[in-house]
């Protein structure tokens, strides 16, 4: 049995758990715990403080695991451990909350420094009226033109599938170019 993994990262409340839940064949295992931090509690009642864990079985001898990382700074010691051995990663951003873009940039740069692994960005919550356009999010995150950023509604399985596929295409391209 072979296993491969992808990491789903991004700021607090961006939609990482929701995204993994949309495609995972098991209930997303996440260690959710009520936060006592007041500012964060107003955003969302409970948040992931450990990590999410989803699974997609490909066939009898290949399984893909999706790991959701806590975005908060105080957990960044986990990123290095998680990034070990990943095929690629997905950075989820909440397109309606520009206040989180700086953190998203920071997470991006940190991951990029750990591993030269392919990644894509999901501009999430595109169903909401306040969502920034994908290209505005791209510029706000200072993404290289070569990096894919895709519109996403984390609860909509099709948009999530597209994101996983685009990441896999990027991985293939990287392999073809001898990267």
């Amino acid at each position: 049995m072979q296993t491969v993994k992808m990491v789903v990262t991004g700021p607090f409340s961006a939609g990482k758990t929701e995204l993994i839940r949309s495609v995972s064949e098991i209930d997303v295992v996440s260690t959710e715990r009520k936060l006592t931090d007041k500012a964060e509690r107003t955003v969302k009642e409970a948040t992931t403080v450990a990590m999410d864990f989803g699974r997609i079985t490909v066939d009898e001898d290949l399984v893909l695991y999706l790991f959701g990382t806590p975005g908060q700074k105080r957990f960044d010691f986990m990123w290095e451990i998680l990034s070990e051995g990943m095929l690629g990663f997905i950075v989820v951003v909440d397109s309606t909350r520009p206040e989180t873009f700086r953190e998203a940039r920071s997470i991006l740069e940190t991951f990029r420094a750990y591993a030269p692994t392919p990644y894509v960005v999901a501009a999430n919550k595109q169903d909401l009226e306040d969502a920034w356009e994908v290209e505005d999010v791209r510029n706000a995150l200072r993404l290289d033109p070569k990096i894919k950023i895709l519109p996403c509604v984390a609860s909509d399985r099709d948009t999530v599938k597209t994101i996983l596929l685009e990441l896999l295409y990027s991985i293939l391209e990287e392999m073809e170019s001898g990267g």
């Binding site: 893909l64 599938k161 596929l165 293939l172 392999m175």
Partner: peptide, 15 residues
């Protein structure tokens, strides 16, 4: 490795 990625692609497309 390439075969593996292609298997993943096939699986996700069919979801």
């Amino acid at each position: 490795q390439k075969t593996l990625v292609n298997r993943l692609i096939g699986r996700i497309r069919s979801m």
